[in-house]
Each structure stands twice: as structure tokens, then as C-alpha cells.
């Protein structure tokens, strides 16, 4: 069970004088239950790639296999794919519209044609999974804080019981605590339910802390791919394409230059502190 992208190309405006080759020959495999981070500067093709995974955008070349089936097959059930691969857009709280939180989360499962009882069970379950307190369920979604609204929007997608959850910059505009809370909930979803998570992010620190694997996009192609510590060890290449490694990577490299025998592959504060303490024999 996995998602396989086989030589995916996407060109838009092909019939105009300025066609854009947005995705260039992408080959990737995403395993069941993986937590994958996708990084890249603005315009590198991250979001376009994500929109291919649930069939919102159709590749102009190549194939996508979801659990072994080609989603571009003529008799493939695209609607089912969209309920299996949930996509949370940037600023998803702009899509909230119902009079209360609970009805908003019910909207998705209701449209799947589920009966009322199942719909409500799922909505309740989804809201619990994102850690929204019960007393907010019957409030207007517009009265919640930024972080709470965003959780409601994520719950709306979770209520569809997706197997894969794609989050496009879920923490943009949130305060630091709000960022941590959302990402911890997402991590918990992965570990507790085995859901596959794809996280598009501009924050290297967040990606370093939570994901199993990183895919670096640049100019429509995959530039680097691998475990966070491997990818961030190429920090000079990342800088060349407008990205960076987490700040601790730079600190450790600076320490090393100054003669401390540290392993520079640590990517979180905790790991780095431990590694420095080890090098100092403390």
C-alpha cells in the first residue's frame, strides 16, 4: 500500500505562448504510515505536486498509482480517491462557513452520503482527534482563535476518514505555541492511527522535529530526498535554492570550526544540547 508517482510532468498554458513546466519528471514513492515533509521555496512546485495526489490537478504526463491502481484509469473512482486522500489547503479556516463548529465538521461526511448517526460520530471523533475542547463544539467557528479555527478545518478533513492527510503549510500565521500544538496533534495522528502524513512547510525547524523523511523541491524537480539529518547536512545546497537548515545545524558547524569535536548532524535543540554536552565530556 503506497502512493507511487511515475515520471509525473505537469505543464500548464501549453496552448499559449508562455507554457510553464511546473513539475518535471517527478518519481517518488510514499509508504503507508510515513510522515513526509515537503520543502521548497515559493513557486518550487510543492503545492502543485500535492494537488496531484488527490486528483485535483491532472498530470500532463506520467502515472500516479494509489494502492496499486492507476488513478488516471478511465474507470477509476476519483471521488473515492478524494475521500481517501484528504487535502488541507493553506489558510483552511477561510473555508469554514457553518453556523457552529460541529455542523462544519459534519459537512464532509454528510456529503459522502453517510447517515446522520455515522456523520455525527465521525465529526465528534475528528474534533477529539484535533484536541478541540468540547465546550467549543456548538460555538460559531468565527469566534475561535486562529489556531482553533485551523484545527476545526483539519477536523473537517479528518471526518472523511482519509488514509492520507496532506497539510499545506498548516502553521502559517500561528503563534509559536499554536504551531507546536498543531504539529504535535498531527504527529499523534500518525503514531496512533497509522495515517500517512504529508506536510508542506517553510519552517525547517518544524520539519526537522517531526518528519521521517524530507523531499526538497526546486524548480519543479526533486532536488534532495532522505532522512532529515541527511538532507540538512547538505545545507549549502539548500541555501543555494533559497532554503536553509535549522539554526542548530549552523551552530554545531560553528562549534566544530572552533575546535569542538561535535557531530554536526543533530537537527533539534535537544539532540544538539546532548551532543555538545557529550563532546565536552559532561
Amino acid at each position: 500500500m503506497s502512493i507511487i508517482l511515475d515520471h509525473i510532468n505537469y505543464i500548464y498554458g501549453e496552448d499559449t505562448t508562455t507554457p510553464v513546466h511546473a513539475l518535471k519528471d517527478i518519481c517518488l514513492q510514499i509508504q503507508d504510515g510515513e510522515f513526509v515533509g515537503i520543502i521548497g521555496h515559493t513557486g518550487s512546485g510543492k503545492s502543485t505536486l500535492m494537488q496531484h495526489l488527490n486528483g485535483l490537478v491532472r498530470a500532463t504526463g506520467g502515472h500516479i498509482y494509489y494502492n496499486g491502481e492507476d488513478i488516471y484509469d478511465r474507470d477509476y473512482d476519483m471521488k473515492k480517491l478524494r475521500s481517501k486522500v484528504g487535502l488541507v489547503f493553506q489558510y483552511p479556516e477561510h473555508q469554514l462557513f457553518e453556523i457552529d463548529v460541529f455542523s462544519d465538521v459534519c459537512f464532509g461526511p454528510k456529503n459522502l452520503g453517510l447517515d446522520r448517526k455515522e456523520t455525527e460520530l465521525r465529526a465528534y471523533d475528528a474534533l477529539r482527534k484535533v484536541g478541540l475542547p468540547n465546550e467549543l463544539f456548538y460555538q460559531s467557528p468565527f469566534e475561535l482563535s486562529g489556531g482553533q479555527k485551523r484545527r476545526v478545518a483539519i477536523a473537517g478533513v479528518l471526518a472523511m476518514k482519509p488514509e492520507v492527510l496532506i497539510l499545506d503549510e498548516p502553521t502559517a500565521g500561528l503563534d509559536p505555541k499554536g504551531r507546536d500544538e498543531i504539529l504535535q496533534q498531527v504527529k499523534k495522528l500518525q503514531t496512533e492511527t497509522g495515517m500517512t502524513i504529508l506536510l508542506v512547510s517553510h519552517s525547517m525547524e518544524d520539519v526537522a522535529e517531526y518528519v521521517d523523511r524530507i523531499i526538497v523541491m526546486n524548480d519543479g524537480s526533486v532536488l534532495l530526498e532522505g532522512a532529515p539529518r541527511d538532507v540538512f547536512s547538505h545545507y549549502e545546497e539548500l541555501e543555494a535554492v533559497g532554503l536553509a537548515a535549522p539554526q542548530v545545524t549552523y551552530i554545531l558547524n560553528e562549534f566544530r570550526k572552533n575546535g569542538l569535536d561535535v557531530d554536526t548532524s543533530a537537527i533539534t535543540i535537544g539532540e544538539a544540547a546532548q551532543e555538545i554536552a557529550r563532546a565536552l565530556h559532561r
Partner: peptide
């Protein structure tokens, strides 16, 4: 700052951690 739902820069946090380890 953490009580106020905020954070500190990564370097500051690392220094704080190292202090906690007796540096």
C-alpha cells in the same frame, strides 16, 4: 515566554538547555 505561548530564538533555547546541563 512559554507561558505567554511564545518562544525564544533557537540559539537562545540551546544556550538555555546547555545551562541546564551545568555549563
Amino acid at each position: 515566554l512559554k507561558e505567554l505561548r511564545l518562544d525564544v530564538p533557537q540559539v537562545t533555547l540551546l544556550a538555555h538547555e546547555l545551562k541546564g546541563r551545568g555549563l
